[in-house]
Design a binder for these strands. Structure first.
Length: 522
RNA sequence: GGCCGAUUCGUCUAGCGGUUAGGACAUCGCCCUUUCACGGCGGUAACACGGGUUCGAUUCCCGUAUCGGUCACCA
């Protein structure tokens, strides 16, 4: 029996969560649920300089919107406002609140000779890198060779090191990376990846401000929080060997989690990974939720605010880099969980195609019950000053939801229902408004005037059909003219239903109005 | 540049030695329809290149090319 699966999503609160981050969270979530495990949210806020207020709340809200549930850590609350509530057995889940833990482990590495103090200033480091570059060294890094030329506890006398620290001189703790060693990482998606330790430099583990870097904090927390699988973006693959080394040096290699590095999301066109700039250029969102930059006040659009349904967004993201091997395209979250498999995650990066996202949205909009879409339409209509009871809103939804990609487009498309035409499409008028059209519209108007029953699409169709038979005009020839008279346009949703919705009186009024306004071309 | 990773239609992908190389988005055409859509049906369109291995390579191996990532006291 193996350990219960525990995964974590560990973003940095440096701004709004990128849509790629949502996908990473999603894959973690799908895997956890599939395996009957737990999903943690940990906040990696060890860089005080990049901390952005509101970012953590944003991340939590975005995950909640997407339907990605957190079992433990930040974002889990007591539900009853209990101030002493701890979101899990390994609290705190904010790294800035765990500094003592990291310092202790870093110190342990120093004591065991696996790490060392370094006093070099930024200028000295620059000088070293420049020197190496000029000397054409393969890589300008702080490593097994260059460390002996720098100011650190390996080159300075022990009493001097002690004196410097006691004098309060700033220092960092660096990993003493082995000179020659093959480090192997097993990736669940890519298989074995081998890296020579000479390619790994003496990474800073503990910064001079006393906070850990990502590498240390990540390993320490993943170990303490009993993480079994690390599922993260491909940008971490190059540092995975370093992480393996750290597990080893900390004595935790036997319980080291398994790794899975996810392919990146790429620009829709051109080179590189998907960026905010691409979103601006392409006119699509790249963040799950709208985000207002607290420093500049600049607003970035969000999938939610743009009208994407969470289930459509999730469905779209899930298929960007993963595929169950079947021809199914539409998945509920439960279906995704049931079919998800890390082994089927693609290895190469995926271009971000917003058209596909729109198609998914279209699918989910048309699947939504009319009654769920109606209130929004009703609200918008009433806000715009139109009378729109819920039965009418529902009919409008039924008429239009299959034609749109976004719910808000239903209201926009319904413009011809709420507003009688003030102008008429000239091309259609020139082509279709002729003597027959006038006779037909007149006859239809009169027939409607004498009509007494319930004003429904089917009966309207019958009235029209009868009237056309009477005047001896083929219905197909004048439909465009009637549409023109009613909506001012040559295109739109089903006409009979449109008339049913606007009602008999308004229909007659519009027909009359067209008769008064439109002239038959000479 | 060093290191690591990747490479099937324009895009997302299926394929895991023998297939008419399948699906979806986009695109084009037809049908349906009173119009425009939706929908249905169909078309165009891909194994980066060169060597091996093999009776046989999209599939395995090695090169080349291209793309991506990474080389901070950022994550």
């Amino acid at each position: 029996m193996s350990k219960p699966v525990r995964v974590r999503f560990a973003p940095s609160p440096t701004g709004p969560l990128h849509i790629g981050g949502v996908r990473t969270a999603l894959y973690n979530y799908l895997f956890a649920r599939k395996m009957g495990g737990k999903m943690l949210l940990r906040i990696e806020d060890t860089d005080q300089n990049r901390f952005v207020p509101g970012a953590e709340e944003y991340i939590i809200e975005a995950l909640r919107w997407a339907g990605i549930e957190i079992d433990e850590g930040q974002g889990v609350d007591s539900g009853d406002g209990d101030a002493a509530f701890r979101p899990g057995p390994h609290a705190p889940y904010r790294q800035s609140e765990r500094r003592d833990i990291y310092q202790k482990e870093a110190q342990r590495l120093v004591d065991e000779g696996k790490a060392y103090y370094a006093f070099d200033t930024a200028e000295e480091l620059d000088a070293m890198r420049q020197r190496l570059e000029v000397a054409n060294a393969p890589a300008a890094q702080y490593n097994a060779i260059t460390r002996m030329q720098m100011r650190n506890s390996l080159t300075l006398r022990a009493d001097e090191v002690k004196a410097r620290i006691q004098a309060g001189e700033p220092y960092v703790i660096r990993l003493k990376t082995p000179r020659k060693e093959e480090v192997r990482v097993n990736d669940l998606i890519r298989g074995w990846v081998n890296v020579h330790s000479s390619a790994i430099d003496d990474k800073v583990l503990l910064k001079s401000d006393g906070l850990p870097t990502y590498h240390l904090a990540n390993i320490v927390d993943d170990h303490l929080m009993e993480i079994t699988h690390v599922i993260r973006g491909e940008e971490w693959l190059p540092s995975a060997p370093l992480h393996v080394l750290l597990y080893r040096y900390l004595g935790w290699e036997d319980t080291m989690p398994q790794f899975a590095h996810l392919p990146l999301l790429l620009k829709p066109e051109g080179n590189g990974k998907l960026s905010k700039r691409d979103a601006d250029l392409g006119g699509f969102p790249i963040f799950p939720l709208q985000w207002t930059d607290p420093a500049t006040g600049v607003v970035a659009r969000g999938f939610r605010e743009d009208g994407y349904l969470p289930e459509a967004t999730i469905n779209f993201l899930a298929l960007l880099g993963w595929n169950p091997g079947t021809e199914q395209e539409l998945f509920t979250m439960d279906e995704l969980i049931a079919s998800f498999d890390l082994a089927q995650v693609h290895k190469a990066g995926a271009r971000f195609d917003i058209q596909k996202a729109q198609w998914f949205n279209h699918q989910y909009i048309r699947l939504r019950p009319d009654a769920e879409l109606a209130p929004a339409v009703q609200q918008r209509a009433e806000a715009a000053g139109f009378d729109c009871p819920s039965e009418k809103a529902e009919k409008i939804v039924a008429l239009l939801k299959g034609r749109v990609n976004f719910a808000h487009e239903i209201f926009t498309e319904a413009d011809t229902i709420f507003n009688a035409p003030t102008t008429y499409d000239e091309t259609i008028a020139a082509a279709k408004w002729n003597d027959d059209a006038v006779r037909a519209v007149t006859a239809f108007r009169d027939a409607l005037g004498g009509f007494e029953g319930e004003f429904l699409a089917d009966t309207i169709r019958q009235v029209l059909s009868d009237a056309m038979t009477q005047v001896g005009i083929k219905q197909g020839k004048i439909m465009q003219a009637i549409r023109l008279a009613l909506t001012g346009s040559g295109a739109g949703p089903d006409l009979m239903l449109t008339m049913e919705i606007i009602g008999k009186d308004e229909t007659v009024r519009r027909l009359q109005n067209a008769l008064n306004t439109l002239k038959v071309p000479a």
